[in-house]
C-alpha cells in the first residue's frame, strides 16, 4: 500500500520500496517503514522450499525513565505499565523485546527493580542496552550490568542471531568527551569489526543503541561521534536497520541500504530538534501525553516483505 499523499520522492519509493505506507489507521498515526528487502534471504528460503513462514516480530521499547516524576509525566512507571499491557494484548506475541536504554531515571536500585518487575510482565525475553541514565550509580554502570547486562562485553555490548537476522547491541553513552556527542570508543568498534567479519553480506543486520548513531541534531548532542565507523563497517550488508532511543520522538531516515529509526519514550516527549530552548522534557496538554508515548513493532516476513517498522502510541 502506497500513500499517494506521501511527501517522499516517488523515485525513492519505486526504487527500493522503502517507505511502504504512511496512513491514518483508526485512532492513531501508524508509520510503516520498510527497511530494505533482504533479497538474498528470500532466495535462500526459496531454494530451501520451505513452507510460508510465520512473520517474525520483535518489539522495541525505549526510555522508560522509571523514577521520573516531574510535571511532564508524574508517573513514568504507570505509563510503562500501560505500554506493557498494550504489548500483552498484541495479537501476535513478539519473539522478544529490545529496550534501547534509559530504563531508569537515576540508576537507583529501586528504579531498576521496579522497571524489571514491570517489564517482566510482558512475558517475553528482553534485550537491553544502557542509556546515560542507567550508568549513574557510584560504580558507573555496575548496577545496570549486574541486572540487565550479564554476559555482555565492555560497558554492555553484544550480538546475537535470531531467524537469520544478526542483532548488535552497542553502548554509546560511556566516556563522553567535552563538547562531543555519543561515543562508542575504539575497543567497541574493534569488537564490532570482528563480530561482523564472518557474516555473509546477505544477512539482515539490526543494530541498536541508545543515542542515535547518525547525527540528528548536534546542538543538542543528538548523534554519535564515531557512529560513521559503525556504518562503514556495515556498508556491505544488503539490509541494515538501526534502532535508537534517547530523543523521545520518532525520526526516521533511509540512506542506501540502511534504515534509521528512533522510538518514542514510554515516559515523556522531548521537543523536535531546535524547536525549544533545550531538549528537556516537554509538557503537553492534559490528555495528550499518551499520544506522544509509545512502542515500536518490527516485522520481518522472510522473502516477501521488507522489514516493517510500526510505531504505536499508547493512546490515539
Amino acid at each position: 500500500m502506497q500513500d499517494p499523499e506521501s511527501h517522499h520522492p516517488p523515485g525513492t519509493l519505486s526504487r527500493r520500496g522503502a517507505l511502504e505506507c504512511m496512513t491514518w489507521a483508526g485512532t492513531g498515526l501508524l508509520w510503516s517503514l520498510g527497511g530494505g528487502l533482504p533479497r538474498a534471504v528470500g532466495l535462500t528460503r526459496a531454494l530451501a522450499a520451505e513452507e510460508p513462514p510465520a512473520p517474525f516480530t520483535f518489539l522495541q521499547i525505549s526510555d522508560s525513565h522509571v523514577g521520573f516524576n516531574k510535571p511532564a509525566n508524574p508517573d513514568a512507571s504507570g505509563t510503562l505499565r500501560e505500554a506493557v499491557a498494550m504489548i500483552r494484548q498484541l495479537p501476535e506475541k513478539p519473539a522478544f523485546i529490545i529496550h534501547t536504554g534509559d530504563i531508569s531515571h537515576l540508576s537507583k536500585e529501586q528504579e531498576f527493580d521496579d522497571a524489571d518487575q514491570i517489564l517482566r510482565d510482558t512475558g517475553v525475553p528482553l534485550f537491553f542496552v544502557p542509556g546515560e541514565h542507567d550508568l549513574l550509580d557510584d560504580d558507573q554502570g555496575r548496577s545496570y550490568r549486574d541486572r540487565f547486562g550479564r554476559g555482555t562485553r565492555g560497558a554492555g555490548w553484544y550480538s546475537f542471531d535470531r531467524e537469520g537476522v544478526h542483532f548488535i547491541g552497542l553502548v554509546n553513552v560511556v566516556d563522553l568527551k567535552a563538547g562531543g556527542l555519543g561515543n562508542l570508543g575504539t575497543d567497541q568498534l574493534a569488537w564490532l569489526e570482528r563480530d561482523v567479519a564472518g557474516l555473509s553480506a546477505s544477512t539482515p543486520v539490526v543494530v541498536f543503541a541508545h543515542i542515535p548513531l547518525w547525527t540528528v541534531y548536534p546542538e543538542w548532542g543528538w548523534g554519535t561521534q564515531d557512529g560513521a565507523r559503525v556504518l562503514a563497517c556495515l556498508r556491505r550488508f544488503g539490509s541494515v536497520t538501526v534502532l535508537n532511543g534517547h530523543i523521545h520522538q520518532i525520526i526516521q531516515k533511509v540512506e542506501g541500504n540502511v534504515s534509521f529509526h528512533t522510538a518514542r519514550s514510554t515516559a515523556f516527549p522531548q521537543p523536535a530538534p531546535g524547536t525549544a530552548s533545550s531538549p528537556g522534557p516537554m509538557k503537553v496538554p492534559a490528555g495528550e501525553l499518551r499520544k506522544v508515548l509509545g512502542i515500536t513493532r518490527l516485522n520481518l516476513i522472510h522473502g516477501r516483505e521488507p522489514l516493517a517498522i510500526i510505531d504505536t502510541p499508547l493512546a490515539g
Binding site: A178, G180, L181, G221
Partner: peptide
C-alpha cells in the same frame, strides 16, 4: 578550569 556535563557533553 574547563568543565562539562558528562551526561550531555555538549554542555560546557
Amino acid at each position: 578550569y574547563a568543565y562539562f556535563c558528562s551526561l550531555h557533553p555538549h554542555m560546557t
